[in-house]
Write a protein that binds this DNA or RNA. Structure first.
Lengths: 301, 301
DNA sequence: TGGGGACATAAGCTGGAGTTATGTGCAGCG
DNA sequence: CGCTGCACATAACTCCAGCTTATGTCCCCA
């Protein structure tokens, strides 16, 4: 359980990446703003903690061992996730005087925006971004009030008073635990079967739920849910442990699918997709940083 | 640059997840093995560091704020990456007396195995796994010497003396920087064009290079590379900064594609795929933990 | 109105990570 | 051949972040 005691500090992982990149403890130390002895000791204690030699030291520099290469690649993923966290958190704190004020739906803010912000930061360092997250109407209100420069929403329609461009699609997929009978079916599920089955769902009013309701209206209508939960995370947890399927955004379950904690159940003849849109007040085409961010988002999902 | 100073500790992120899950600082504290005041102070200093209120405290418990929900979701990604790191590192240290000894090619060990190990740990906690990473022939040698129970290789053929099962495919894709002319082409690239262009590549002998050589043999043969580098990471960095394309495993560039640091260039009529295989000594079908891990890997990539 | 749950505050301890100063080993060169 | 430069290791000391225990405050509920 105490993961933090078995995984090196973020600072140590960054240092390791610097050693890999620069080929010497001393240079890596300078690059990360510490002294050479500090770097030396930190790498050493990381090796002690992991029980694996990571770098080959020599009087001419330091190189990663074979194990070190692997560990460094795994470390890179942690650091990248931390960068996304940082980009998101910065934007969340961002003051109203930011150069680029973004308003986004929860799903987009959760899964896509941090990556875009990392890319933006790489290409235009120093662009101060602020982020507001809320539902579609709240995003629209912000834009119309002039309190945001660019919005992102998912859903079937563009809110009144806004122009928009489709930047990607979000597919809703049926998921079940690997142990669930549906995971072993040979024939595709039918829409009617799906409609008739009590599912684990977000509460009524969520965007996902609306799309699902609409799509199954012609197939007998959605059965009463087995369980209604307030957050996507809670739904995922319930699907994994309980024995009922759910319908979730593919953005939300990518991780779970690759780790096989959840399995996607194909459904015959049912397209549960919703567009992801960038939106802005009618007539005011995005310019400057907003235009640049918009360019980064094409082809999302 | 000093990312670690702006992102909370892994321990703090874990604690935040526990608060989200359990709805109270005190319970979260107990769950993570610290006392309530420690948790209180840690969450508070995280809020100070991020400049955002994360939890609403009340005498009846604590709930995440709207911003807290977002931050927690981003934190979850960091923690999941750390879990993969941990699972990998544990296996790397694993002693020879492990219950399951895995040998895998570098690509698979880097990108796929940690996720499988996390899944395995969730389903069969306490299965001690050890990992050896090397090229196909080294993996084969381990298996044939009885020093490994299950192997994973990518490539065109099954090494002699081994049986195997295809568990997925790895597609090699042409990538370029967004600023590169190929990223703006309207017409698909032809195989002959690709063959005639000097690329940034791994050194001769790497698996990727072999597949590429074979596939382009009928299209005039691969031109001399512009640059030959020793690691996939170095190749990616060169493609991003230099003005030349490369051909890389889609496993290696997933992150870069979604962040738009790299762009995939479609090529007409060229299928650069290689199978990912689980392998074992002829006749000795995997049993026990090996069989279970094998089950987790189906449908990879 | 008293008890219990939940969070905050206070005071003191500890260890990890950092710093400066110095030592060792190796390569290249005048 | 010894000097210089570079890289890593060791030693001694400092400091602060995070932990603990003890106690206070607030609110709900029986």
């Amino acid at each position: 359980m105490p993961l933090a005691h078995r995984v090196p500090d973020l600072g140590a992982l960054e240092l390791l990446l610097a050693v890999a990149r620069l080929g010497s403890l001393g240079r890596a130390a300078r690059a990360t703003g510490i002294t050479q002895p500090a770097a030396s000791s930190r790498i050493r204690s990381m090796e002690r903690q992991l029980g694996v030699a990571l770098v080959d030291r020599s009087p001419r520099g330091s190189e990663l061992t074979d194990a070190g290469v692997l560990v460094t690649d795994w470390a890179r993923r942690v650091v990248e996730a931390a960068e996304a966290f940082d980009a998101g958190a910065q934007a969340l704190r961002g003051r109203r005087d930011s150069r680029l004020r973004v308003a986004a739906s929860m799903t987009i803010a959760e899964y896509l925006l941090p990556g875009w912000l990392v890319a933006l930061r790489a290409q235009r360092p120093g662009t101060a971004v602020s982020l507001f997250a809320g539902n579609s109407s709240a995003v629209a209100a912000r834009l119309l009030a002039g309190e945001a420069d660019l919005g992102f929403v998912e859903g079937l329609d563009v809110p009144a008073g806004l122009d928009g461009a489709v930047i990607g699609r979000d597919r809703l997929i049926v998921v079940a635990a690997p142990a669930h009978p549906w995971s072993r079916r040979r024939r595709e599920l039918t829409a009617a079967e799906l409609a008739a089955t009590p599912l684990i769902l977000r509460e009524r009013g969520s965007g996902t739920r609306q799309v699902l309701d609409a799509a199954l209206a012609g197939h007998g209508g959605l059965a009463d849910p087995l369980l209604e939960l307030a957050s996507t995370t809670a739904v995922k947890a319930a699907v994994v442990s309980e024995a009922a399927p759910s319908v979730l955004s593919e953005l939300a379950v990518g991780e779970e699918l690759t780790a096989r904690r959840l399995v996607e159940i194909p459904v015959a003849g049912l397209r549960l997709v919703r567009d992801l849109r960038a939106v802005w007040p009618t007539g005011q085409r995005p310019a400057g940083p907003a235009r640049h961010l918009l360019g980064l988002t094409r082809g999302a999902a």
